[in-house]
C-alpha cells in the first residue's frame, strides 16, 4: 500500500485531492480554506458587489448553484459584504427533473435561511418546457429553455427588487462557452462570454463568482462539506451541441488540466479586429428586453409556439424578423406591467 501523500500546504494532514489548476496536493481543511479564500478573492478583485445590494442567486438545486449559495452566505457573513441575499429558482416545467431539483432547493433554503422565490415558464410565457418539447420534437429544446431561462431570471430578479444576479457558472462552463462560440463563429458572444460581470444598460448586472473555480473542486467542496444537491441529467439535454463541446473539453482536461483555465484566459484576452461589424444592442419592440434584433429571441420563439410553427425562431433570423415586425403594435405581446406580474412571483414559506 502506498504511503499517504501529505498536504503540501500544512504538511501535517493527509492530502485529499490534487488541485487541477496548480497540481498541489492539499488536505481537506486546507483545500476548503483555500477554495473559500479564492472565491472571496475573485469577488473582491473584480468588485462584484457593493455594500447594501440585494443579490438574487440563481438556484437550480444543482451542484454549482448550491455551492454558490452556500459560499455567498458564508462569505457575506465572514467578510461583512453587507449583501441581502435571496434565492431565485426558475421552474421550466420539466417533470422528473426540475420538480425534483426544486425539492433540493427547498431543502437548502431551510439550511441557508434565505428567502426563496420560484417563477415558472408557465406563469411567464404560458408554456411549460414539457409542452414545448411535445411541439418542437427532440431537437432544439435547449435553445428554447436557455433563451427563456435567461429572461426569466432577469424578470424574476427585477420583480424582487434585486440589484444584481449571481449565477453558478464555473470555469468549465465558461471554457465550454468560449469553445462553443468559437466553433459557431459567434464573435459577438465570444467577446462577452468570458466576462465576470455582464449586463447593465436595460438588464440587471449578472456576475459569476465561481468563474475561476474548477468543476472538480466545486464537486469535491460540496462532497467534503456535505452539501445536498440534485444531480439528474435533464431529460432534454442529450441532444444539445453543448454536450459535445463538454465531452471535448473533458477529454482535453484529462490530458492537460490547465486547459480549462487556459480557455477562460483566452476568452478574456481575445481581441476582435476593429473592422469586424458587431451586432448593436437595442430593445425588443415587443417586450422591451435587450435584443440585437427588432424582436428578442424569446419573443420570436414564443411567436412560433403560439402560431403552431415551433421552428420559427430556429436558425438565421433576418428575414423572419422583417416578417414578424411588419405588423407590430407596441402594446401587443408580452405584458411587463409590474403590478400584473407581481402575482407571478410567490414566496415559499414553510
Amino acid at each position: 500500500m502506498p504511503a499517504p501523500v501529505l498536504c503540501q500546504s500544512c504538511g501535517a494532514g493527509r492530502a485529499a485531492l490534487r488541485r487541477p489548476k496548480t497540481g498541489r496536493a492539499l488536505c481537506r481543511a486546507c483545500f476548503v480554506a483555500a477554495f473559500e479564500a479564492e472565491v472571496h478573492g475573485t469577488i473582491v478583485s473584480a468588485r462584484l458587489f457593493q455594500p447594501g445590494e440585494t443579490v438574487a442567486v440563481g438556484a437550480s438545486g444543482g451542484k454549482d448553484s448550491t455551492v454558490l449559495a452556500h459560499l455567498l452566505r458564508l462569505l457575506n457573513e465572514r467578510h461583512g459584504y453587507g449583501l441581502r441575499l435571496l434565492l431565485l429558482s426558475i421552474d421550466e416545467g420539466i417533470a422528473g427533473y426540475r420538480d425534483d431539483s426544486l425539492e433540493a432547493v427547498r431543502r437548502n433554503r431551510g439550511r441557508l435561511g434565505l428567502p426563496l422565490h420560484v417563477l415558472s415558464y408557465q406563469e411567464l410565457y404560458g408554456w411549460s418546457m414539457d409542452r414545448i418539447a411535445r411541439h418542437v420534437g427532440p431537437k432544439n429544446n435547449c435553445t428554447f429553455c436557455g433563451v427563456f431561462r435567461r429572461q426569466a431570471l432577469d424578470r424574476g430578479a427585477a420583480l424582487l427588487g434585486a440589484d444584481k444576479i449571481a449565477t453558478g457558472h464555473n470555469a468549465d462552463d465558461v471554457a465550454e462557452t468560449v469553445l462553443m462560440n468559437f466553433l459557431r463563429g459567434d464573435v459577438g458572444r465570444l467577446r462577452r462570454c468570458a466576462g465576470i460581470l455582464t449586463g447593465g444598460e436595460g438588464t440587471l448586472p449578472r456576475c459569476k463568482p465561481l468563474k475561476h473555480a474548477y468543476e472538480k473542486e466545486i464537486v469535491l467542496y460540496a462532497y467534503f462539506q456535505g452539501l445536498d444537491y440534485f444531480s439528474t441529467e435533464c431529460v432534454y439535454a442529450p441532444n444539445a451541441y453543448r454536450g459535445h463541446t463538454r465531452t471535448l473539453l473533458k477529454d482535453l482536461e484529462a490530458v492537460r488540466p490547465s486547459a480549462v483555465a487556459d480557455l477562460v484566459h483566452s476568452g478574456e484576452r481575445l481581441a476582435v479586429r476593429e473592422d469586424v461589424r458587431m451586432p448593436t444592442q437595442g430593445i425588443c419592440q415587443r417586450c422591451g428586453y435587450l435584443s440585437s434584433q427588432p424582436l428578442c429571441k424569446a419573443c420570436v420563439l414564443l411567436e412560433g409556439l403560439n402560431r403552431g410553427l415551433p421552428r420559427l425562431g430556429i436558425g438565421k433570423p433576418s428575414r423572419l424578423q422583417k416578417a414578424l415586425t411588419g405588423a407590430e403594435k407596441p402594446e401587443a405581446g408580452f405584458q411587463e406591467d409590474s403590478e400584473q406580474s407581481s402575482n407571478a412571483v410567490r414566496t415559499i414559506d414553510f
Binding site: 501523500v5 490534487r18 437550480s60 444531480s231 435533464c234
Partner: peptide
C-alpha cells in the same frame, strides 16, 4: 485517486471507493 496511483492502486480489504460524476446539471 490521482494521489493514489489511479488505475494501478491495489485494493485492500475494507477499502471505500467513491465515484462522483461532475457531468450532471448545474
Amino acid at each position: 485517486w490521482e494521489l493514489m496511483g489511479e488505475l494501478d492502486y491495489q485494493l485492500q480489504d475494507q477499502d471505500n471507493v467513491v465515484f462522483i460524476s461532475t457531468l450532471h446539471g448545474g
